[in-house]
């Protein structure tokens, strides 16, 4: 685990990552309400993992759309922890939103067993994409939009499954670093046991994101914030106190995962091509 030496500038980074949570809350409530209703719908679907990101989204969606218009879907696999299920239940009960629980084990195990050599990355991706299928099916059944739960840290690091957890109609918190997600979660009243537990994709017992990535979210947040948001150069980040190897590793992750943050690229042939020079907002006409 990287521990950057404490320097004045690093403390400053931490300070600058503090947000006015009531202002951000105000914008995100309007964002969710606006992006749902301008499609003609009134409801939202959230996949509830029991973690901080999806819990926060459930809190925001319940306030923006009303609890009866939000469906929280728990999608455990047989190895998922009971604590995850319990925490998701805690959120559902606290908010009074609607709930559905769909066990993905009988859906994904046949595929996983079909390829005995399959590693944990492949099986993890299969689970993530199966959850996407369930959410989009519930989207049709419930008549609501799938609200994504990605945060800026994991989106920049590429810690997500393409067309799995990254698939959503909108991403309310994808411009908030993990440290900022925690601040907003406190403001919204997300239960402390959810805010304070180590982030985990719950792919196998005892797994944590930070062990898997190899550094802490806090360190990644401060480095990404300095380089992406404040436009410090990598050299300046090293001078600030981040170890060189850490800086290189994080920037490599950002660059290599950029394809996950973009729509599939289209081969340019005509004079006017989708994705190149056929340019309209998604909110066109609404």
């Amino acid at each position: 685990m990287v521990t950057p030496s404490k320097s004045l500038e690093l403390n400053l980074m931490r300070e600058k990552l503090q947000i006015n949570t009531s202002l951000v809350r105000e914008v995100l409530l309007r964002f969710i309400h606006d992006e749902v209703t301008r499609t003609g719908l009134t409801k939202g679907i959230v996949g509830l993992s029991g973690g901080i990101d999806s819990s926060l989204i459930a809190y925001l969606a319940a306030e923006a759309l009303g609890p009866a218009s939000v469906l929280g879907v728990r999608m455990p696999y047989r190895r998922s922890s009971q604590e995850s299920l319990d925490h998701a239940q805690l959120v559902t009960d606290a908010l009074g939103i609607q709930q559905e629980t769909v066990d993905i084990t009988p859906m994904v195990d046949p595929l996983i067993e079909r390829f005995p050599e399959m590693d944990q990355v492949r099986s993890g991706n299969i689970m993530s994409r199966q959850r996407m299928i369930i959410l989009y099916d519930q989207s049709a059944a419930f008549g609501g939009l799938v609200i994504g739960t990605s945060n800026k840290t994991e989106a920049l690091l590429g810690y997500s499954t393409l067309f799995g957890d990254s698939a959503a109609a909108m991403q309310p918190i994808a411009d908030l670093y993990k440290m900022q997600v925690r601040q907003l979660a406190r403001e919204m009243g997300v239960p402390p046991e959810i805010i304070n537990k180590p982030p985990s994709a719950d792919l196998w017992p005892g797994q944590t994101d930070e062990d898997e990535i190899g550094f802490s979210y806090d360190n990644a947040d401060q480095l990404l914030f300095a380089i992406i948001d404040l436009r410090y150069s990598p050299e300046e980040a090293v001078k600030m106190g981040f170890p060189q190897a850490f800086v290189e590793r994080v920037l490599t992750l950002v660059r290599r995962s950029h394809y996950k943050r973009r729509m599939p690229i289209i081969a340019k042939l005509s004079n006017r091509s989708i994705g190149h020079d056929f340019l309209y907002l998604r909110d066109w006409g609404t």
Binding site: E15, K16, Q18, I19, N20, L23, V24, V27
Partner: peptide, 11 residues
Amino acid sequence: PARGMSSADRF
């Protein structure tokens, strides 16, 4: 458009 959040009470 609002941009530039911080701990301040406005963007």
